[in-house]
Simulated assay, not measured.
Amino acid sequence: MTVDLVLMTVVEGRLSVLVQRRAQPPFAGSLALPGSFVGPGETLEQAARRVLMEKAGMVEGWLEQLYTFGDPGRDPRMRVISVAYFALMPAACLTDAVAKREDLLLAPAAGSQAPLAFDHAAIIELAVERLRGKLDYAPVALALLPELFTLRDLQEVHEAIIGKAVNKPAFRRRLLDTGWIEGTGQREAQTAFRPAEFYRRAVPDSSL
């Protein structure tokens, strides 16, 4: 039994996922999702948290169980069942992780031409589909933003996730109506345009 983590963020307007270049066979030299076999005394959640700490340096953070992948041929070594988790993180968390390790990099979460080891391309595809489906009913995109953000920041994150532009007035009206965010009264400084108001999360992390 293994766990594989789909750790996603938005970098330069593109939804990206953390991948690792494998040093050992099978698929040595290929990119793969960070993962690990589950230890004898670990729960699935504990194993996922351990991988999160080892690869991204994060002790805490939102993780959601995605799906269990059990195709008999998914691992050429033996029958291996993997439980996949996915999470959204601010870009700085994952870019810092990449800067500290030569085997880690951020790759496009959708439309990448680079072959991935095992069935990890299918895992990422399902994670992106799940994420897009949650946008309308859960404030998941807030996990990608700093404590204070503008409506422009929030719109850019949504557009990166769904892969297309949204109608600005309709998007902002809908997000304000959800009650997920609240204005702070603070505004941007040193901007060439009209300073935008900063917003913050108005819902707990558990609502993700």
Rank of each mutant, 00 (worst) to 15 (best):
V3K: 06
V6P: 00
L7R: 01
T9D: 04
T9C: 05
V10T: 03
E12P: 00
V17R: 08
V17F: 04
V17L: 06
L18E: 01
V19C: 02
Q20P: 00
Q20D: 04
R21Q: 11
R21A: 04
P25D: 12
S30C: 10
L33H: 01
G35W: 06
V38E: 07
P40A: 09
E42V: 04
T43R: 09
Q46W: 06
Q46M: 06
A48I: 04
A48Q: 05
R50S: 04
L52Q: 03
A56T: 02
G61F: 03
E64V: 13
Q65W: 10
Y67K: 12
F69C: 02
G73V: 13
P76A: 08
M78R: 15
R79W: 12
I81M: 07
S82V: 15
V83F: 10
A84P: 01
F86G: 00
F86H: 14
F86L: 12
F86A: 07
P90W: 05
A92H: 14
A92G: 10
T95P: 01
V98P: 08
K100R: 15
K100N: 10
E102M: 11
E102L: 13
L104D: 05
L105H: 12
A107Q: 15
P108T: 07
S112W: 09
S112K: 04
Q113C: 03
A114C: 03
P115E: 13
A122R: 13
I123G: 01
I123N: 02
I124M: 04
E125M: 02
A127P: 01
K134L: 15
L135C: 08
D136A: 14
V140L: 08
V140D: 08
V140N: 05
V140K: 07
L142S: 06
L142P: 03
P146N: 07
L151P: 00
L154C: 05
Q155L: 14
E156C: 08
H158V: 05
A160T: 05
I161R: 03
N167G: 05
K168R: 15
K168T: 15
R172W: 12
L175E: 12
D177G: 04
T178M: 03
T178E: 04
T178G: 01
G183A: 09
G183M: 03
G185P: 01
R187Y: 15
Q190D: 14
A192F: 14
A192Q: 14
F193P: 00
R194K: 14
E197V: 08
R201P: 01
P204A: 11
D205Q: 14
S206R: 14
L208R: 15
